[in-house]
Simulated scan of single mutants.
Amino acid sequence: MEKLLNKILLGDCMELLKQLPDNSIDAVITDPPYCSGGRNAGARVKLPSDKYGLSSNKTVHRPDFAGDTMDQRAWLRWCVLWINECHRVLKDSGYFLMFSDWRQLPTATDAVQMGELIWRGIIAWDKGGGSRAPHKGYFKHQCEYIVWGTKGACKKAIHAGPYPGCFKYPVKQSDKFHLTGKPTPLMEELVQIVPENSVILDPFVGSGTTCAAAKKHNRNFIGFEKTKTYYDIALARIKD
């Protein structure tokens, strides 16, 4: 376990999770592929940059990533597999936080419970008024969500809390290192749900924002990333 602390590993999380011992992680905080872009099979298999990239930001190139072509049933099955492994490695009362958009939110809450975790609620991330809407008749897709739960009881915290149920952080291009990257200040808030020197695992580390936030706030981290380009970006961010 010690040799994995404060490192990011390149590979598939389903294989890398097997290297972690039981009951060794204080919190899992992660942003898996949503597999939510596209209403039909043809649209779903498009590149993530075509599904999620804003037309106004096409001049900003960010690499695509793997694992975003599943339909909802396949995505649910896949989530249950890796969440089961997260349940195994979490300590008793450990936290599990998983990002989702509105399209996959119902399925994400099912996956957390099917992975034997206790679903505790939903945290809203307000991205700001600049978010998209198809036309004037729509409510803006202004929020994404964090499905959270625990392995067993949710114990009273001594170091902090209670924690906000909604965070408002805009996406800034200068702070976006991944095609679907989350704001660094948001991740800095989330890593503080556990005390200093705790171990935070991110099985889908992307550009390394969870790990950068953990490092800044004196939490240990372990990150896994499957896409080599983003793995390299994450390593560079942690080094800096």
Rank of each mutant, 00 (worst) to 15 (best):
residue 2 E to Y: 09
residue 4 L to H: 11
residue 15 E to C: 01
residue 20 L to H: 01
residue 21 P to G: 03
residue 30 T to I: 06
residue 34 Y to P: 02
residue 37 G to M: 04
residue 40 N to L: 08
residue 40 N to R: 06
residue 42 G to W: 10
residue 42 G to S: 12
residue 44 R to D: 10
residue 48 P to R: 05
residue 48 P to K: 07
residue 55 S to M: 07
residue 58 K to M: 09
residue 61 H to R: 12
residue 66 A to T: 12
residue 69 T to Q: 11
residue 71 D to W: 11
residue 72 Q to D: 15
residue 77 R to E: 13
residue 78 W to V: 01
residue 79 C to D: 10
residue 82 W to D: 10
residue 82 W to C: 07
residue 99 F to E: 03
residue 105 L to D: 04
residue 105 L to V: 13
residue 107 T to N: 08
residue 114 M to I: 09
residue 116 E to T: 13
residue 127 K to D: 02
residue 131 S to P: 01
residue 131 S to I: 01
residue 132 R to H: 14
residue 133 A to C: 11
residue 133 A to K: 15
residue 137 G to L: 14
residue 142 Q to V: 07
residue 146 I to L: 13
residue 156 K to F: 08
residue 156 K to L: 13
residue 156 K to V: 15
residue 160 A to T: 04
residue 165 G to C: 02
residue 166 C to F: 06
residue 171 V to Q: 13
residue 175 D to M: 08
residue 176 K to A: 03
residue 176 K to F: 00
residue 185 P to L: 09
residue 185 P to K: 07
residue 191 V to S: 03
residue 196 E to Q: 14
residue 207 S to Q: 04
residue 208 G to L: 05
residue 208 G to D: 01
residue 212 A to K: 15
residue 213 A to F: 03
residue 217 H to V: 01
residue 222 I to H: 06
residue 222 I to N: 05
residue 226 K to T: 03
residue 232 D to C: 02
residue 234 A to Q: 06
residue 236 A to W: 00
residue 239 K to H: 08
